[in-house]
């Protein structure tokens, strides 16, 4: 797998990263190097091997259905640059 410049630009847009045009070409090289490194794994024969999610053997921890959190709107919006009362306020986004 190899990425071209247009694909990298599109991924940057989806990730809301502003990448100047002169940085795109080097980034294509960097990303392709990373992909190439990961693709070494393809050399291993995995026929008949189940996907492995983790090596610990742990199961997904599950909690009981109880209200144990919340009730602190002031903490939630503490870092908001421009709260309105207990709301976050952001530039208007309307479809």
């Amino acid at each position: 797998m190899s990425l071209d410049k247009a694909t990298v630009a599109s991924i940057a847009t989806l990730a809301r990263l502003r990448v100047p045009d002169d940085r795109l070409e080097p980034m294509v090289g960097d990303l392709n190097a990373i992909l190439g490194f990961v693709e070494q794994l393809n050399q291993v024969n995995t026929d008949g091997v189940e996907p492995l999610a983790n090596v610990t053997g742990h199961a997904l921890p599950q909690r009981e259905d109880a209200v144990t959190d919340g009730g602190y709107p002031e903490r939630v919006t503490l870092n908001a640059p421009d709260p309105a009362g207990d709301f976050y306020a952001v530039p208007k986004v309307v479809e």
Partner: peptide, 24 residues
């Protein structure tokens, strides 16, 4: 359900803004 899918905050309808929000 009483609480959210991945956090212990409440789910009731019509509560005060951001009052049923955990840091998750």
């Amino acid at each position: 359900s009483k609480s959210k899918l991945f956090s212990g905050a409440a789910t009731a309808f019509g509560a005060e803004p951001n009052s049923q929000v955990s840091l998750v």
